[in-house]
């Protein structure tokens, strides 16, 4: 039993890595543009479909399909900024939320019209690794390592480049950053493109793990949102830590109970933390 729990904890950490990557994009967009991207999980869903179509129907190699998906999701991010977020930047919060929530309906029904309600996946079998007494899914390990590398590259991008510096500064003071000679509108576009590309990357790592259906995204939007709020909105380190907390909690409690109850436990922990620390574990702060 103890070994089983430990095994579940390891799997939870692996899951946490990918969740951290997913939450990172949502957090970055919130931190910089001060908007909650309600349709974030739906981006991942579209990315998965795109990889499916390019691989199974256009017969492109999987890696190439994934790269195209990352690029396409970045463009979708740009379009979201241009057509939805940009025009509503000065609008009341509620309007912004409703518009982005509207995108959920657009994307999910679009997927339903094009691909129907079937579950679709690419038959891809990565081995299950046996390390000591522990069993680890190769696809999860691959996704975990990929997510960590991506997060490392993002860290370098934010901390070592001028654009990254402009993004961090914009997150801290949207008005003053203009006085530094930064075109804040370009920063928003770059942020949305980066956030979009991240959903493409997450979709690529999800491809060997999940099958996709039109409502695939909603649970991941909620999951990412919970992680972001739990860590402290806009706090990238907080999001990173809470992704692993949520990953391990859901994974371990799934072994002890069932997957449904595991979600309830994760949400209960979330609610408890919110009651005690409404600002999140590490509090809100700049990037």
């Amino acid at each position: 039993m103890f070994e089983q729990i430990l095994n579940a904890a390891i799997n939870g950490i692996l899951l946490g890595g990918v969740l951290a990557l997913l939450a990172f994009g949502l957090n970055l967009i919130f931190g910089v543009v001060k908007i909650i991207h309600m349709a974030y999980g739906q981006f991942v869903m579209l990315g998965l479909y795109l990889i499916y179509v390019l691989t199974m129907q256009v017969h492109l190699p999987l890696v190439l399909s994934a790269l195209i998906a990352v690029f396409a999701m970045a463009i979708l991010g740009l379009l979201t900024q241009l057509l939805v977020i940009g025009p509503l930047l000065e609008a009341p919060r509620l309007n912004q939320l409703l518009a982005l929530a509207g995108l959920i309906i657009v994307f999910e029904n679009l997927a339903m019209v094009i691909w129907g309600a079937d579950y679709r996946g690419i038959p891809l079998y990565l081995p299950i690794l046996k390390i000591g007494n522990f069993f680890i899914r190769g696809s999860c390990l691959f996704a975990f390592l990929g997510a960590l590398i991506t997060l490392g590259l993002l860290y370098l991008f934010l901390n070592k480049t001028y654009i990254g510096l402009a993004i961090r500064a914009t997150a801290q003071d949207t008005e003053i950053v203009k006085l530094m000679g930064v075109n804040s509108r370009s920063v928003y576009f770059i942020t949305l493109a980066a956030g979009g590309a991240l959903t493409g990357i997450v979709a690529a790592f999800f491809t060997p793990i999940y099958t996709v259906h039109p409502h695939f995204g909603s649970s991941f939007t909620i999951m990412a949102f919970i992680i972001v709020v739990l860590g402290g909105m806009g706090n990238l380190l907080g999001g990173f830590i809470s992704a692993f907390i949520i990953g391990v909690v859901t994974s371990v409690s799934a072994v002890l109970t069932t997957t449904e109850i595991a979600d309830i436990i994760a949400l209960l922990i979330f609610i408890l933390v919110m009651l005690v620390r409404p600002q999140g574990l590490l509090g809100t702060r700049g990037i």
Binding site: R168, Q172, R285, G286
Partner: peptide, 10 residues
């Protein structure tokens, strides 16, 4: 109106 979470150099 400094950027409080950036270093002096940044």
């Amino acid at each position: 109106r400094l950027f409080p979470y950036l270093t002096v150099l940044d």
